[in-house]
Every structure is written in structure tokens, then in C-alpha cells.
């Protein structure tokens, strides 16, 4: 669906040149919600703006829907851009136009008739739940409502892709969740491919299917959200997850020193999260356990649990407990040596 090949973006020339992206490849599948997470300055904003060529890469190819956008003429590009919707952190609505006129904007660019525009805008207003606000100006709306207008406007031209540039970063947590639910809803209803960039792991965890972690102008890790989230490899990824799950470091230090005895991190995914596997196995092998830390939550709609557990008992019994848990399909990582 979207293929970025060898994207390099250098700002400025000569000695003042700054490289935002270097030789980056990325592949996004049709119908998925793909998240890109990174700190500010990592190049994520440049990356998403390269997808519709708001930012023209210094080098590389941008393929969307089988078309290399970098080779198009100005007018061909304008045509292709209508298939790519975009929403922004600061909404970027026309302050001089009503909600209705903002949503109608892309339709008027396409020179549709008045009746066609009316039909489409009405449909979009009901999709984003703003029917009563059609004649208001953006200044009269809350942040969440403004982003809903932004979403309706982005969807007006029936795009195949929706790009979200920090779309929830200016919103409070509750509003963020309602916007994320709306995006997920749209993704399912319209089978729309969504690419979003964010610096919040929470956003990725809530709605993304796959995630890429960007750092220093390149992608350092990518994959299914559950895999990346539960088994992070790169230091930057671990940092994002720590900030989300708030795993505290005194415990980590105590575990590493071995003063707490044998501790393991057990990861449950899917239905296993709700099963009593742990106590069942422990009862069988005769060991006792204490839960030192735990998270039970969901990734998109999939439940998961991650527990740090200390076992008490015969060394052999502990080992067979671990073996049995693994045999039951749980992921067990021994934290102490």
C-alpha cells in the first residue's frame, strides 16, 4: 500500500545541512493502522510529511497505491494527494469558514455540485458526530470537536490512506481516547489504511496493528505491536515502554542484585491473561510465589498481562515450575541469575 524506499531528507545545504531521515525503508499494508513512535526531533514528522510529499525527500521513492509520487508532475501530484487524507496536531482548519464549509473544502476543490457536497458533508458530520455544530466556526469548538472536523475533512475525498500527524497530542487524555476510538472505528468501517505518528506509547497500544520506532532519522525496531511492546529490543523502545508501564527501577536493581531470590517475568497474551495458569502450576509443583509487580491491560483489543514473580521453594521445584509455565504457552523470562 505504502512503500518508502531509501528515503533521505536533508535540510539546508553545505555546512548548515541537517539530516532528518537517512536511507529509511518502510512498508505499510493495506487496511492496517501503522504507528510510528519517536521522540521530538527523531524525524517522525518529516517521515509522515514525506508520504504525501508535503516534504519532498532529498532522495528515495514514495510509493502510494502503486504510484511513485516523487515522479509525478505538479498537477498529477495534486490529483494523487486527494487519495491521501491528513489530520494535524493543531487541526489546521480554516478559521474563517464554518464546520460545514471546512468539510466541504476538499469537495469544492474537486468541483462537485452543490447537492453532492451537501450529501457528502451531511454523511461525514454524522460519522464524526457533529451534526448540531455544522454552522459553528472553529473558534467556537473544543479541541476534540476541532479534530473531528479535521477527520471529516480528511475523509471527504474518500481517501485510501489517512495520515495522522500527532493528531491527539494537543488533546486531553479523555478526548484523546474518543478520537482514537473514532479512528479505529473508521479504520474498520471504511477499511482505511491509517498511518499515525506520536510520542505516546499509549496511542500505539490503543489502536495500532504494527509499530515502528524511529530514532536519529532511522527505524530502529518495528513489528507487531504486541511483540514490540512485550519484548522490546532497542533501548529507545524500552524507554517508551517504561514510561508507559512505569516499571520502577529500585525493583529492577533489587532483582539484579539477587537479594529477592529467583524472580521471573511472565507474559500472558490473549485469553491466557484471564486463566489461572500460574496458581495452577504453582500448586502442582508445590512452590509459593509473590507478585512483585504486575500489569494487566490490552494492546488494541488483545488482553495481556505481565507479572514479575518471585518463587519460594526447592530449586528443582522452581525450575520445573518455570518449565511447566513455558509448556502452558506462557512467556517466561528469568530476571535473576
Amino acid at each position: 500500500m505504502i512503500e518508502l524506499k531509501g528515503i533521505t531528507k536533508v535540510y539546508g545545504k553545505g555546512r548548515k545541512a541537517a539530516t532528518a531521515l537517512s536511507n529509511l525503508d518502510l512498508s505499510i499494508r493495506k487496511g492496517e493502522i501503522f504507528g510510528v513512535i519517536g521522540h521530538s526531533g527523531a524525524g517522525k514528522s518529516t517521515l509522515i510529511r514525506c508520504i504525501n510529499l508535503l516534504e519532498r525527500p532529498t532522495d528515495g521513492e514514495v510509493w502510494v497505491d502503486g504510484v511513485d509520487l516523487t515522479r509525478l508532475s505538479r498537477s498529477q501530484l495534486q490529483e494523487q494527494r486527494r487519495k491521501i487524507g491528513m489530520i494535524y496536531q493543531h487541526f489546521n482548519l480554516l478559521s474563517s469558514a464554518t464546520v460545514y464549509d471546512n468539510i466541504a473544502f476538499p469537495l469544492r476543490l474537486m468541483k462537485l455540485t452543490k447537492a453532492q457536497i451537501e450529501d457528502k458533508v451531511r454523511e461525514l458530520l454524522s460519522l464524526v458526530g457533529l451534526e448540531e455544530h455544522r454552522n459553528k466556526y472553529p473558534a467556537q469548538l473544543s479541541g476534540g470537536q476541532k479534530q473531528r472536523v479535521g477527520i471529516a475533512r480528511a475523509l471527504a475525498s474518500n481517501p485510501h490512506v489517512l495520515l495522522c500527524d500527532e493528531a491527539t497530542s494537543a488533546l486531553d487524555p479523555q478526548t484523546t481516547d474518543s478520537i482514537l476510538r473514532l479512528l479505529l472505528d473508521i479504520n474498520r468501517k471504511l477499511n482505511l489504511t491509517i498511518v499515525l505518528i506520536t510520542h505516546e506509547m499509549h496511542v500505539i497500544q490503543s489502536i495500532c496493528d504494527r509499530v515502528a520506532v524511529i530514532h536519529g532519522g532511522g527505524i530502529v525496531e518495528q513489528g507487531e505491536v504486541a511483540k514490540v511492546f512485550l519484548k522490546p529490543q532497542h533501548e529507545v523502545t524500552k524507554e517508551f515502554i517504561r514510561s508507559e508501564t512505569q516499571q520502577d527501577s529500585p525493583l529492577q536493581a533489587a532483582l539484579a542484585s539477587g537479594e529477592l531470590g529467583k524472580a521471573v517475568k511472565i507474559t500472558f497474551l490473549g485469553e491466557k491473561t484471564y486463566e489461572s495458569t500460574l496458581s495452577h502450576v504453582a500448586r502442582g509443583t508445590g512452590v509459593n510465589f509473590a507478585i512483585l509487580q504486575g500489569t494487566i491491560s490490552t494492546i488494541k483489543d488483545v488482553p495481556y498481562g505481565q507479572l514479575v514473580v518471585r518463587f519460594e521453594g526447592e530449586a528443582a521445584a522452581v525450575d520445573s515450575t518455570i518449565a511447566e509455565l513455558t509448556a502452558q504457552g506462557l512467556d517466561v523470562e528469568v530476571l535473576t541469575r
Binding site: M86, N92, L94, S95
Partner: peptide, 20 residues
């Protein structure tokens, strides 16, 4: 940002002048 959004929606320069 508003001008950029219009560009992103495929507006030509003339359309940006007249409509934005």
C-alpha cells in the same frame, strides 16, 4: 498550517489564494 493542509488536499496555488 492551514495553507499546508490545503496543499495536502491537492489545492492548486490559485485555489489556495482564492479559498484560503
Amino acid at each position: 498550517g492551514v495553507i499546508e493542509a490545503a496543499q495536502g488536499m491537492g489545492a492548486s496555488t490559485l485555489q489556495i489564494v482564492m479559498r484560503v
